[in-house]
Simulated scan of single mutants.
Amino acid sequence: MKIGIPAESRQGETRVAATPETVKKLVAAKHQVVVQSGAGVSASVTDDAYVAAGATIGGAADAFGAEMVLKVRAPSAEERTLMKSGAVVVGMLNPFDAENTAAMAAHGLTAFALEAAPRISRAQSLDVLSSQANIAGYKAVMLAANTYQRFMPMLMTAAGTVKAARVLIMGVGVAGLQAIATAKRLGAVIEASDVRPPVKEQVESLGAKFIDVPFETDEEREIAKGSGGYARPMPEAWMKRQAALVHERAKQADIIITTALIPGRKAPTLISEETVKAMKPGSVIVDMAVEQGGNCPLSELGKTVTKYGVHIIGEANLPALVAADASALYSRNLLDFMKLIVDKDGALAINREDEIVAATMLCSGGEVLRK
């Protein structure tokens, strides 16, 4: 099968869907791989490295004209015109973007959105959300440390003692846990909050203190368990109690990192404008949910702004700031997914009965499959 690896055209997207490591494995499986010239440059991969792995280098039309196209982000309208009807496209295609899905279906594409893979053990090796969130959690702390105008660890010097930074992590999924681990390595004192009680043990195992918001009803306790590994919207009464507790903790924090997302919905507000006003001058907020509306209403997409003396970082694509490793992990996710839709002879073999395939398949044969 001919597999195309195009350069990503979305502004700020530095990742690439294949590395020399995965290209070598695809070629060994008897696939023909064509990489758009320059596709890997921003991820520190040269065209020569792809050629050495067995790929051929071509233009955009060559990469998009393949039977299967591996991408990081969904193809744009211009990119779709370069693709053949009946081609397969695999990537992070945003399953909640109905307009884009309809456009891919109208073009005759068979599209797989890996973000929609179910949270089951068999899908762990192709879990793009986890692999990229892990990187984002790390980078969020590094950005915060770079912006924060004090040390992260406690230091005892001849000139006196410097207190350790106090870090508050809001939302303890994969990104939040990595943020805790990274901040801990840098010597910070860390607190963390999440609506799901089971994460308390994970938080404490990483050396952070878990902020408990008591449940007052069985309904709150049940909702807090989440669904499919994701958080669910909590009742308004619980959110008010959490907001009050967060407000008090935020006044003491030097750095706040928010990671809270609900799939397909606007990100919940965790840090209000009133809370920002109450924070210490020079404090830092990294709003990792800024692309979905933000956990702080003062965040601005793609910008770092200062409001009430607080630096608020609204970087939308943190994994793209660690492009080499982000691409390496992502390309392995893609490679593992391909095992589900390609047979041992290298031919396309889509089994719609497979729960992972069924969950990720957005459209095929002109039909939108995910409503």
Results as ranks from 00 to 15, higher is better:
residue 238 W to G: 04
residue 295 N to W: 01
residue 216 E to N: 14
residue 244 A to V: 06
residue 320 A to D: 05
residue 230 Y to W: 08
residue 307 K to R: 15
residue 267 A to R: 03
residue 318 L to R: 03
residue 248 E to T: 12
residue 278 A to K: 07
residue 310 V to P: 00
residue 306 T to V: 15
residue 194 D to M: 05
residue 287 D to G: 07
residue 293 G to F: 04
residue 239 M to P: 08
residue 265 R to C: 10
residue 231 A to M: 12
residue 228 G to R: 07
residue 295 N to I: 01
residue 247 H to G: 13
residue 243 A to G: 13
residue 297 P to R: 02
residue 235 P to L: 04
residue 248 E to Q: 13
residue 192 A to C: 08
residue 295 N to D: 09
residue 193 S to P: 11
residue 229 G to D: 07
residue 228 G to Q: 10
residue 295 N to S: 07
residue 249 R to Q: 13
residue 283 S to P: 05
residue 305 V to S: 10
residue 258 T to Y: 03
residue 211 I to W: 01
residue 281 P to M: 09
residue 231 A to N: 08
residue 209 K to L: 13
residue 274 E to M: 12
residue 205 S to V: 11
residue 266 K to I: 09
residue 247 H to R: 12
residue 226 G to R: 04
residue 258 T to M: 09
residue 292 Q to F: 14
residue 321 L to P: 10
residue 273 E to H: 09
residue 273 E to S: 09
residue 306 T to K: 15
residue 275 T to W: 01
residue 270 L to S: 00
residue 207 G to H: 02
residue 218 D to A: 15
residue 309 G to C: 07
residue 304 T to N: 08
residue 297 P to Q: 01
residue 332 R to Q: 15
residue 255 I to F: 01
residue 244 A to M: 07
residue 250 A to Q: 02
residue 320 A to I: 06
residue 241 R to H: 11
residue 322 V to I: 13
residue 218 D to C: 11
residue 307 K to V: 14
residue 287 D to N: 07
residue 217 T to C: 09
residue 313 I to K: 02
residue 274 E to K: 14
residue 325 D to T: 15
residue 279 M to K: 03
residue 256 I to H: 00
residue 218 D to G: 10
residue 327 S to A: 09
residue 269 T to C: 13
residue 286 V to T: 05
residue 255 I to D: 00
residue 304 T to D: 10
residue 325 D to N: 15
residue 215 F to N: 07
residue 323 A to H: 08
residue 292 Q to P: 12
residue 248 E to A: 12
residue 283 S to F: 01
residue 316 A to V: 10
residue 325 D to C: 12
residue 193 S to F: 15
residue 286 V to I: 10
residue 288 M to H: 06
residue 205 S to F: 09
residue 216 E to I: 15
residue 271 I to F: 02
residue 236 E to W: 12
residue 214 P to W: 07
residue 279 M to C: 10
residue 312 I to L: 02
residue 263 P to S: 07
residue 252 Q to H: 13
residue 231 A to C: 15
residue 209 K to I: 12
residue 240 K to I: 11
residue 305 V to Y: 07
residue 288 M to W: 01
residue 244 A to F: 04
residue 196 R to K: 14
residue 333 N to F: 08
residue 199 V to F: 04
residue 332 R to H: 13
residue 218 D to V: 13
residue 257 I to S: 02
residue 195 V to G: 03
residue 333 N to Y: 08
residue 205 S to A: 14
residue 328 A to W: 13
residue 212 D to M: 14
residue 232 R to M: 15
residue 248 E to C: 04
residue 192 A to S: 07
residue 229 G to W: 02
residue 203 V to Y: 02
residue 193 S to H: 14
residue 234 M to K: 08
residue 238 W to R: 11
residue 231 A to P: 10
residue 306 T to F: 11
residue 243 A to Q: 14
residue 304 T to K: 06
residue 245 L to S: 14
residue 260 A to T: 08
residue 285 I to L: 10
residue 263 P to D: 03
residue 323 A to F: 04
residue 255 I to P: 00
residue 260 A to Q: 03
residue 271 I to M: 03
residue 224 A to R: 02
residue 282 G to Y: 05
residue 317 N to Q: 07
residue 283 S to G: 12
residue 205 S to T: 12
residue 286 V to C: 05
residue 321 L to E: 14
residue 236 E to C: 13
residue 320 A to M: 06
residue 203 V to R: 00
residue 208 A to K: 01
